[in-house]
Design a binder for these strands. Structure first.
Length: 427
DNA sequence: CCCTGCGGGCTAT
DNA sequence: ATAGCCCGCAGGG
């Protein structure tokens, strides 16, 4: 072990023995966030992120470091319907990425362009992962200065769709779009056919996972689906064609048969959305500018307006028997997660469960999106106002999280348990 | 084919 | 010492 990387920092100043609460998995960590996840959190185990993060050698086997690859955009900055832009996920593998960059924009056939991430002092945003007993410590450094790419699932689904399309390319249904905008009859829809102006409710009904991304792929708007899984077998959107059939996890199985109101299974393809809200090229605009525009300080602000729970002021109190979330949680059918050993050879998985950790482990992978409220003053949000009637003020680090408000909002508007159960019937 | 993690090695500050 | 990056390798899906 030669070099060390911010080990103290990654310790988060918290003795793992003193960790009382764990955080919900954050799919789009941004800014300078620190989180503690349960070691049973599958997403955390896999060090997932919806940002395209590649492994970076930090010469410290105890700390996994990843750096952001940015986002692939159309060099012509073309727009699809309603002004939405193409934001592809950079391939993680170097070779694959080079290959990817030789491809053409799926919308206009123009060359693709990789916008590198320079959100950390001109360098890519870095994420650090460290396993310690029953917890997984996470820290991100820097603030992404580029749009969000597709999620991993979306990118995988798009590849699958493309592959399937090429396999049946003799089939006729062709679009005027490029090679990646083909349609499969039945399950798959083309990007162009996708709903471009989903309301949040629509998103939730169709997919708890992707709805957040669809409307959340905007600058400064934290993901709506931060609590949702990125891994196979978890995400509703990917469940239909990418679920791990061997998974023994209850929640995953629960979602495998999630159906759309139409009765057919959700497919990733129809939930795919390469682009979303208007996102003008602001590559010139640095994070600090953005934050200035938002009245935020990137160095000390770790606001998470759409998080279900406060994430940065841990350990925080969350008494399941007292807060308003309980009915919601209790109504969700839960199977205990299979006790799986750590997937990381170096970081053993401990035993034991705290109640809140169980809740976490059970729900964080398919928990419906809560809220994602772009601050109205966000100069980049030109078209999207999901809930103009419900605006959050940005909770600063010292501001108190309005948990009740959050849960009320969830209950009334989005995370209606009944709805969830309707769409995800128990077997 | 691609993702992911590991680790050697190089370079810069 | 810290940090960024390149490369190849291996395991896995």
């Amino acid at each position: 072990m030669g070099r060390t990387v911010d080990y103290q920092d990654l310790n988060l100043g918290v003795d793992s023995k003193n960790v009382k609460k764990t955080d919900w998995f954050q799919e789009w960590p941004d800014s300078y966030e620190k989180h503690i996840y349960s070691s049973e959190d599958r997403n955390a185990q896999r060090h997932l992120s919806s940002w395209a993060m590649r492994n970076t050698n930090n010469h410290n086997s105890r700390i996994l470091k990843k750096s952001c690859l940015g986002v692939v955009v159309c060099s012509r900055n073309c727009s699809v319907e309603e002004g939405r832009k193409i934001y592809l996920r950079p391939a993680i593998c170097d070779k694959a990425r080079q290959k990817q960059q030789r491809k053409r924009c799926p919308n206009c056939e123009a060359p693709l362009k990789l916008i590198p991430c320079r959100g950390h002092g001109g360098f890519p945003v870095t994420n650090f992962w460290r396993h310690d007993g029953r917890f997984i410590f996470f820290q991100s450094k820097g603030e992404h200065d580029h749009p969000r790419p597709e999620t991993k699932l979306e990118a995988e689904a798009r590849r699958a769709m493309k592959k399937a399309q090429s396999a049946s390319s003799s089939g006729s249904l062709k679009l005027k779009g490029g090679p990646e905008t083909k349609s499969l009859p039945g399950e798959m829809q083309t990007w162009g056919n996708l709903p471009l102006t989903w309301s949040f409710q629509e998103g939730v009904q169709l997919s708890g996972s992707y709805s957040g991304h669809l409307i959340g792929n905007m600058p400064q708007q934290k993901s709506l689906n931060d609590c949702l899984s990125l891994s196979k077998g978890y995400g509703l959107g990917g469940a239909a064609n990418m679920a791990d059939p061997t998974s023994t996890l209850g929640p995953a199985k629960l979602y495998e048969k999630c159906k759309l109101p139409s009765g057919r299974l959700c497919s990733s393809g129809e939930l795919l959305q390469p682009v979303s809200g208007v996102f003008p090229d602001y590559s010139d605009l640095q994070p600090w500018n953005k934050n200035a525009a938002l009245g935020r300080n990137p160095l000390n602000d770790s606001y998470c307006p759409n998080y279900t729970f406060p994430l940065t002021n841990w350990p925080y109190d969350f008494s399941p028997s007292q807060n308003s979330a309980e009915p919601f949680f209790q109504q969700i059918p839960v199977e205990p997660p299979a006790a799986k050993p750590s997937c990381h050879p170096l970081w053993p998985n401990p035993g034991g469960d705290l109640y809140e950790e169980k809740v976490h482990a059970d729900f964080n992978s398919y928990y419906p999106s809560t809220t994602g409220h772009p601050p109205q003053e966000d100069p980049f949000l030109l078209t999207y106002t999901p809930h103009p009637h419900h605006q959050y003020s940005l909770p600063g680090k010292s501001s108190k999280w309005d948990f009740e408000e959050e849960m009320r909002y969830m209950g009334l508007d989005h995370c209606n348990t009944e709805m969830l159960l309707n769409f995800c019937p128990l077997r």
